[in-house]
Deep mutational scan, measured.
Amino acid sequence: MEVRTIKVFTTVDNINLHTQVVDMSMTYGQQFGPTYLDGADVTKIKPHNSHEGKTFYVLPNDDTLRVEAFEYYHTTDPSFLGRYMSALNHTKKWKYPQVNGLTSIKWADNNCYLATALLTLQQIELKFNPPALQDAYYRARAGEAANFCALILAYCNKTVGELGDVRETMSYLFQHANLDSCKRVLNVVCKTCGQQQTTLKGVEAVMYMGTLSYEQFKKGVQIPCTCGKQATKYLVQQESPFVMMSAPPAQYELKHGTFTCASEYTGNYQCGHYKHITSKETLYCIDGALLTKSSEYKGPITDVFYKENSYTTTIK
């Protein structure tokens, strides 16, 4: 009895394709271990004539594949690729409408935090270190965002349907971005203890939790000093293409032309909904596939993004 075979390709990165001759009487799992086709788990399936010449994702289970996976995804987590594939199996079914010149995501599976993050990423200057993220990001900007969303979920250790947080998501993504040249110098002034300067680099240099107003941050924000008295913390120097200011959701007025974009969060910790506000020729609110415009805006804002380049204080 002759062994019926077909020729397929296996890959971990969709760049390096490895030619395989597979036995049609055995499952993919018996031949390769966990195997995925377009995100779908085909591990328990036997090869079919229609699979001839198709590319299958496999887990990096030998040295060659491990090197290829690390170079593309910059992670050695053995569960990463499987999590990416199972997320992709959902995100490829989502709709990605162009809204006001940006790629958004039609609401499904509690994905409003991903839509808000995706919209924000198209408006701030950011370059990702893992080629996987950078490639998928370019495709997302062009309207094909399924891979990018699935990668975000995998890097953030999230599953489809789980509630997510924009600030946490951005923080994970910033860790995989090139923020080497970003720098922030802060000064804390206390009447009792004097003053202390701190220099922050990388992710810490672009994120701040405690106030939404970048102007206020430049002037000074009140913080408790270690001595128990009130101290003032203010920005001395900022070198970065953008800054992200966050605070627990509270009524906040966004003035046209003073910011790049913002995240609105309605609801409580267990259950809520994100919308995205962007400042173009007027203010726009993007909620999944829905767009509304207004000249002014007041609502429960939790993150505001500002364009920056270089700032030095005039406070002496």
Rank of each mutant, 00 (worst) to 15 (best):
E2M: 08
R4N: 14
I6R: 07
T11Y: 08
I15E: 10
L17K: 14
H18R: 11
V22Y: 03
G29H: 10
F32D: 10
T35P: 01
A40W: 11
T43G: 13
K44N: 12
I45C: 14
I45L: 12
P47V: 09
H48L: 13
N49D: 14
E52A: 12
T55V: 10
F56Q: 02
Y57M: 13
L59R: 10
D63T: 06
L65D: 08
F70I: 11
F70Q: 11
S79T: 14
Y84S: 08
K93S: 11
N100W: 00
G101M: 15
T103M: 03
I105F: 01
D109N: 11
D109K: 00
N111R: 02
Y113V: 02
L119W: 04
E125I: 04
E125D: 15
L126R: 05
L126Q: 05
K127G: 03
N129P: 04
N129V: 09
N129A: 10
P130T: 09
P130L: 02
P131Q: 06
L133R: 01
D135W: 09
R139F: 03
R139V: 06
A140R: 02
R141K: 15
G143A: 02
A146N: 04
A146T: 00
A150D: 06
I152P: 02
C156Y: 00
C156G: 03
N157G: 11
K158R: 06
T159N: 14
G161V: 01
V166C: 03
T169W: 04
S171N: 12
Q175K: 12
Q175Y: 11
D180Y: 08
D180G: 09
R184G: 13
V189Q: 08
C190Q: 03
C190D: 05
Q196T: 14
Q197N: 08
Q197A: 08
G202Y: 02
V203F: 08
G210N: 01
L212S: 04
S213M: 04
Y214T: 02
E215D: 14
G220S: 04
Q222E: 11
C225I: 00
Q230G: 04
K233R: 14
K233D: 03
Q238M: 04
P241C: 06
A247H: 02
L254K: 02
G257K: 04
T258D: 15
T258E: 14
C261N: 04
C261Y: 02
S263H: 15
S263M: 02
E264Y: 07
T266M: 03
G267M: 00
G272Q: 08
K275H: 08
T278W: 05
T278M: 12
K280F: 11
I286A: 04
D287A: 01
K293W: 07
E296R: 09
E296P: 09
G299T: 01
I301Q: 01
Y306I: 02
K307C: 13
N309F: 03
T313D: 13
I315Y: 15
